[in-house]
């Protein structure tokens, strides 16, 4: 693939043409918040709406996970408009996330914490009150558990299950605010085709899927 030069925050960087800007930035040590991105997707879902950047010459911010690298493409990872959208998206996600970092198995390894740190956002419910939906956790597997009240619907576990492990135990179901990661007919994971390969757990950027303490892992 031919190489092009893109300019991120003033830095000139060589990248394969067409490669999505998010990956170019991350690889070069420039952080852009992201949750749903998986590089192998033919078409990025672009669902978390956190990876906005400002492209020179364009008024509205665009998602970097869908932005192909092209020669001379110049972007800023921060701008007042980018910051405003990222803050709102982040706070919206938090409003549906049970925040109990101290007792969360992902404490210190959580992507939400990282975003908060990088972008100086508060890990507290702010403008948008907590929705308190709290669906019941599923700890039926021997080695791991799933607490949907922490799930940010990034879909990475489903990618791992369906495309990497090729099992088909979990998927998205329902629509709108009720969209969720479930098994067939919402049965417990232990009753699903899941073979506990653990790939989905490793893919989860937050503490929704986590290995049980007793199990040997990570």
């Amino acid at each position: 693939m031919s190489k092009v030069t893109v300019i991120i925050d003033g830095r000139e960087i060589k990248a394969p043409a067409g490669r999505k800007l998010l990956w170019v930035a991350l690889e070069n040590g420039i952080y852009i918040p992201n949750l749903c991105a998986v590089e192998e997707y033919a078409r990025p879902p672009a669902s978390c709406r956190l990876c906005f950047v400002q492209v020179e010459g364009r008024e509205k911010p665009v998602t970097s996970c869908t932005l192909p690298a092209a020669d001379g493409l110049a972007v800023q990872t921060r701008s007042p408009r980018v910051d405003r959208l990222v803050r709102t998206a982040f706070e919206l996600l938090l409003s549906d996330h049970r925040l109990q970092c101290a007792s969360c198995p992902a404490n210190r390894a959580c992507e939400l914490q990282k975003i908060a740190r990088e972008r100086k956002l508060k890990l507290r419910y702010g403008r948008f009150p907590y929705l308190q939906r709290e669906p019941a956790p599923d700890d039926s597997p021997q080695t791991f558990a799933f607490d949907p009240s922490r799930c940010v619907l990034c879909g990475r576990c489903i990618w791992a299950d369906q495309e990497v492990a090729k099992i088909g135990a979990i998927g998205f179901s329902r629509r709108g605010i009720n969209r969720s990661v479930t098994t067939f007919k919402d049965v417990a994971l232990a009753e699903s085709p899941c073979n506990e390969c653990g790939l989905c757990v490793k893919a989860c950027p937050v503490g929704a899927l986590y290995f049980k303490k007793t199990a040997e892992s990570k």
Partner: peptide, 14 residues
């Protein structure tokens, strides 16, 4: 709100 597909953050939660 009821008809949102629920995929993206702004529409689902916003």
């Amino acid at each position: 709100q009821h008809e949102s597909c629920g995929k993206c953050t702004f529409c689902r939660l916003g």
